[in-house]
C-alpha cells in the first residue's frame, strides 16, 4: 500500500514537473514569434516540410473517408427515403468532426513524429547545444518556426481533408448510387451554416494544430538524447497527441454544439 502511494506520488510529481517544463517551453517558443516574422524563409521552409509534405496522405485519406461516408450515409438515409440529404450529412460530418479530428491524427502521425525525431536527434548530436554556444537561441531559431508552421498548416490541411471528402462522398453518392447531383450540392448549401459548422471546425483544427505541434516539439526537445530516448519520445508524441486531440474534441464539441 505504502509502495503504491509512493509510486503514485512520484508519478504525479513527474507528470506535473513535465507539464511545467512543457508550459515554460511553450511560452519561450511563443516569445520567439517576433524574431521569426521578419525572416519568412525560416517559416516557409518548415511549412513545406510540415504542411506540403503531408498533402498526399491528407488528400488520399480524405477521399476515402468521404467515399465511406457517402456509402454508409446512403444506406442509412435511404431507409427513410432521405437520400437527397446525403450532401448535408457528408459535409456536416466532415466539416464539424472528421475533417479536423482525422486530419489532426494523421498530422500527429506524419508530421508530429517527424518533428519529434528531428529535434530529438538534433539534441542527441549536440546540434542544439552547438547553436547555444554560437549564441543562437535554439528555441527561437528551430522551435518557433516549426511551431508556427504546424499552427498555420493544420487548419489548411483540415480544410483540404473536408473538401476532398465532400468530393469523395459525391463520387460515391451521385456517381455510383444515383443520388441527384443537384440535390447533393443544394441540400449541402442550405444545411451547412457558416458560423456553426465551418468556423467551429476551423477553431477545432487550430486548437488541434496548436496542441499537436506543441507536444511533438516538446517531446523532441525533452527527449533523452540517445537512440532509445528519441524512439520513446516519438511514440509518446503520437500517443499523447491522439489522446489530447480526441479529448479536446469532446470538450470543444460540448462547448460549441452543447446548447442545440
Amino acid at each position: 500500500m505504502i509502495r503504491f502511494l509512493q509510486h503514485l506520488g512520484k508519478n504525479t510529481r513527474t507528470s506535473f514537473t513535465k507539464l511545467g517544463r512543457g508550459t515554460f517551453f511553450l511560452l519561450q517558443a511563443i516569445s520567439g514569434v517576433p524574431s521569426v516574422l521578419p525572416r519568412p524563409r525560416l517559416l516557409l521552409n518548415q511549412m513545406y516540410s510540415v504542411g506540403v509534405l503531408s498533402f498526399l496522405i491528407i488528400t488520399i485519406s480524405g477521399l476515402f473517408v468521404g467515399m465511406v461516408l457517402g456509402l454508409q450515409g446512403f444506406y442509412t438515409l435511404s431507409d427513410f427515403g432521405a437520400e437527397e440529404s446525403l450532401g448535408v450529412m457528408v459535409a456536416a460530418s466532415l466539416v464539424r468532426e472528421l475533417g479536423p479530428v482525422v486530419s489532426a491524427l494523421l498530422f500527429a502521425g506524419r508530421a508530429g513524429s517527424a518533428l519529434t525525431a528531428e529535434i530529438g536527434l538534433m539534441k542527441a548530436t549536440e546540434q542544439l547545444s552547438g547553436m547555444e554556444m554560437m549564441a543562437v537561441d535554439p528555441i527561437k531559431r528551430i522551435i518557433t518556426p516549426r511551431f508556427l508552421a504546424g499552427l498555420i498548416s493544420m487548419p489548411l490541411l483540415a480544410a483540404l481533408f473536408s473538401a476532398v471528402g465532400i468530393i469523395g462522398g459525391q463520387i460515391v453518392g451521385s456517381g455510383l448510387l444515383g443520388v441527384d447531383e443537384g440535390a447533393y450540392w443544394s441540400q449541402m448549401q442550405a444545411g451547412i451554416d457558416f458560423h456553426d459548422d465551418i468556423i467551429n471546425g476551423v477553431i477545432k483544427s487550430i486548437v488541434f494544430g496548436f496542441v499537436a505541434s506543441w507536444i511533438a516539439l516538446f517531446e523532441g526537445y525533452d527527449a533523452i538524447p540517445t537512440s532509445e530516448g528519441v524512439s520513446r519520445a516519438t511514440t509518446r508524441t503520437v500517443v499523447n497527441s491522439a489522446f489530447s486531440i480526441l479529448g479536446l474534441d469532446f470538450i470543444l464539441t460540448t462547448l460549441m454544439f452543447g446548447d442545440h
Binding site: 549536440e126 546540434q127 547545444s129 552547438g130 547553436m131 549564441a135 537561441d137
Partner: peptide, 19 residues
C-alpha cells in the same frame, strides 16, 4: 551571456554540424 558567447568558439567532439 549571448554577447560573450559570440566571442567564444566551441568545437564539439561530434562537430555538431547542422545536418
Amino acid at each position: 551571456l549571448y554577447n560573450l558567447r559570440k566571442r567564444l568558439g566551441m568545437l564539439f567532439q561530434s562537430g555538431a554540424l547542422l545536418t
